[in-house]
Design a binder for these strands. Structure first.
Lengths: 255, 255
DNA sequence: TGCGACCTTGCCCCAAGGGCAAGGTCAAGG
DNA sequence: CCTTGACCTTGCCCTTGGGGCAAGGTCGCA
């Protein structure tokens, strides 16, 4: 006769595991000796080995009894089901790996592949890390709040990275981060940015723009990503210029 | 400003998950409004999306802060480590599937591949299910208690399945399961089994037999696997005949 | 008689939340 | 003004498969 420790050693598991299997009804509780110790026979080794083998093969404890008690047909079916679950689990993990491999640099963290391509090209421009992160965060926000819209506009933004005027404005923003909001150079930069904006596709002209709630748009446009008074001032200046320009354009169109 | 439910919807997670991330320090607790509700801004969407993306990619919550706070080199290293863990996990699951596929029939349950081959050939002989299971259990016990010895003797046992005398004795045992222990046919069967045993390799002659503790041998030989008085009687009869035969042999050898 | 190794039960712990309870809050409609 | 339903708050218990510890009883050996 064996003690629980000896049984555990024979089956290669912990005594705790055996007690758990007793508690879950996977193994019958054996007789006790005079002092209350569990006493096992050879059959217990067989029973335990079956449970342990199935458990290590990935069968959930709650279903091991079903597998062991099943006859041939049922057993095949049970094993097939568990195998299918294992297969699905493996597929999920492999998808995780694929996604994870894109996240090996902080500047691409958590972006979909097409945005990662943009970030990789943006990197060649040599902006500050703060600025790159702010742009990355803008994409994360864009994908979270209006994925379709963001996906739609991305190709044109990517193309702009080959546009000297766009790159110059980007560099201008980079330089301006720590300027005072009263810095006179901001007007010049706002002019350049406004010229650029008028040349670019307006987000509000994109298909699907109407389907995005206005609060969502406010969230998107209200977030600069960097706490820079100069950028806030730039935002004001450009908005003012664009409003004027749009009014003029509308006047021209309707007049 | 967003409530926790709106934030959850934007990021595609449950409000509970967000609270858990707050509790684990993955996300900063936002300010509360007058009635104690959490109020979030756009930055919270970005932060949460990063956490959720990494969590869904399989990064343990406890390590997400490290990944997010890491600079380029560290991030690469962290991601590499997590990727390696995922890879190892996938390999383990694939091994499970391989083992599991062998277990699609109860008569092979929990056996190593070489024993499964034996059981498959044994099946052709057409013994009763009870008998087949007892033999399977004998192998499970053998592998649990003395794997090397069992592995060593298995090829010769497999070969015996082509031996008419061995098969006849197996069938004899199968018939005898429910006989009375006084049945006179048991003597005949014991004779046949003893002739066979003398022709077979004795387990005690195998290399490594000495290294198996005698209590383990007792466990192995003491287990018949089926509660059959006739089999117990057979065991007695054969042991008596073998003891005599061995004594005679020893006398012949030493004399 | 003592020591170390073993056994017993019971309790708390891990990840990553799910679910529910009890109570407070908000906006809309009657 | 009141109700209703949807939302928010905290707190507690549940899941899987055990690990670890505590307090106490027991075994074999010197």
């Amino acid at each position: 006769m064996l003690t629980i420790g000896q049984l555990a050693k024979h089956a290669g598991v912990s005594t705790k595991a055996i007690r758990v299997y007793h508690a879950k009804g996977l193994l019958p509780e054996p007789d006790r000796d005079a002092s209350g110790y569990r006493r096992y026979d050879a059959q217990a080794i067989i029973d335990l080995t079956q449970v342990v083998t199935l458990a290590q093969a990935g069968v959930p404890l709650a279903r091991i009894r079903d597998v062991l008690d099943a006859d041939t047909d049922q057993a095949t079916e049970q094993i097939d089901r568990i195998d299918a679950e294992l297969r699905a689990h493996i597929r999920r993990l492999q998808q995780r790996r694929t996604r994870l491999r894109h996240f090996d640099r902080p500047d691409r963290l958590c972006l979909p592949p097409e945005a990662i391509e943009f970030m990789d090209r943006l990197r060649g421009i040599g902006l500050s890390e703060r600025h790159e992160h702010a742009i990355r965060d803008g994409f994360i926000l864009g994908y979270a709040l209006a994925a379709d819209l963001t996906r739609t506009i991305l190709p044109s933004r990517t193309a702009l990275l080959g546009d000297d005027e766009y790159v110059a404005v980007l560099r201008g923003y980079d330089d301006a981060i720590d300027w005072s909001p009263d810095d006179p150079r901001l007007d010049e930069l706002a002019d350049a940015a406004t010229r650029l904006a008028l040349r670019m596709t307006m987000v509000s002209d994109l298909p699907g723009f109407d389907r995005v709630p206005s609060e969502t748009i406010d969230l998107l446009t209200g977030h600069l990503g960097i706490d820079s008074p100069a950028w806030e001032r730039l935002d004001q200046l450009i908005t003012r210029r664009l409003t004027t320009a749009t009014q003029v354009r509308n006047t021209n169109t309707t007049g």
